[in-house]
Computed example of a mutant assay.
Amino acid sequence: MYILLALVAACALGIAAHFLIDGRELRGAALTPGIATVVTAALYTGLQWAGLGEDNVWLWLASILGGVVVAVVATLALVAARRRSDAAKTAALGI
Rank of each mutant, 00 (worst) to 15 (best):
K89R: 11
G53D: 03
A71P: 07
A10H: 02
A92N: 02
Y2I: 15
A74Q: 05
L7Y: 08
R82H: 03
Y44L: 10
D86V: 04
W60I: 09
L52D: 06
A91H: 15
L26S: 08
I21G: 08
L31F: 15
Y2F: 13
R83C: 00
T37E: 01
A12D: 02
L76Q: 10
A12S: 12
L31T: 10
L7P: 08
T40P: 10
I21W: 09
A36E: 01
A10I: 03
A91V: 12
I3F: 07
L78F: 15
I95K: 09
T90Y: 12
L52R: 03
L61D: 00
I35E: 00
K89T: 06
V57R: 06
Q48R: 15
H18F: 13
A36P: 00
A30Q: 09
L59Y: 12
A71W: 02
L76T: 07
I21P: 10
D22Q: 09
S63Q: 02
A77C: 14
D22M: 09
N56G: 07
V69A: 13
T75A: 04
T90P: 08
L93M: 14
A29N: 12
T75F: 08
V39C: 03
T40I: 14
V79C: 03
V70Y: 06
L31M: 13
G23R: 03
A41D: 13
L4S: 03
V39P: 01
A12F: 09
A74G: 09
V38Y: 04
G66L: 02
A91G: 14
A41V: 15
G53A: 03
G23H: 04
N56Q: 10
R24M: 07
V73L: 15
Y2R: 09
V79Y: 02
L13S: 00
G51W: 11
R84K: 08
R27E: 14
D86P: 04
R83I: 02
M1V: 14
A9T: 01
A87K: 08
T40G: 05
M1Q: 10
L52N: 07
L20N: 07
L52V: 05
A81E: 00
A6M: 07
A92S: 04
P33C: 07
R84N: 09
G23E: 06
G28E: 12
L4Y: 05
